[in-house]
Amino acid sequence: MKSARMTPFRQALGAIVLKDLRTELRTMRSLPAMVLFAVTTFVIFRFGLDRTALSGSLASGVIWTTLLFAAVLGINRIFLPEREEGGFDAFRLAPVDRPVLFVAKAAVLFLYLVVLEVVVVPVFAVFFLQEWSGLVPLVVILLATNLGFAALGTLISSMAVNSRARDLLVPLLLLPLVVPLMIAATGATSHLLDAGGPSYDKFGTWLLVLGLYDGIFCLVGYAVFEFLLED
């Protein structure tokens, strides 16, 4: 039931996003861990693959695997304050639409991923890449994939947070669901990071796949989220 006293969507959204960003700035719960994890993973790949320079599909595989697992770390924690400190109850009491929380958390996750990539992708380039010109178009792929991660991650995290095996369930449920995203993202990235400079082979097609996937799971998440909040 909407009443005249409902807090407007945008105002509620802004309040939750700012709250989360402020908490993150003060506690540094997620982002430093994600960045550190990603950089360490690069080091492990350097020895695991025994390569000092990467290009093409190998480079794209390394960067996306690393980003995915770093994202899982963040996704695991995105609803933690809500659960541990009674944020869910407070939210249920507040006169706002339920899906606001989904959009807000997805936005926060998106921002986390952007910050993560702003730090980690240049580090990756310094460590492994000889040809940097593919990084500019890569931004588009990164943003499109982040949107999918944010929507699915928020949905999965809110499903897992109220279960007993939270830390276990997030990767378990999320990884199969993001396989198509990874297919499209790595497919586009491997051509962008080719040793001889970026090629835009199938770039548009992959972007279309990413867009379609993002769109559908944003809608699904938005539609089903309120059922996860009922108690």
Binding site: L155, L177, P180, A184, V209, L212, Y213, F217, V220
Partner: peptide, 17 residues
């Protein structure tokens, strides 16, 4: 919620692969 999400995933996944 899982069943709905996964049900939507089935056709999309086939397309992407």
């Amino acid at each position: 919620v899982f069943a709905i999400t996964a049900g939507a995933f089935v056709p999309l996944n086939f397309m992407a692969v």
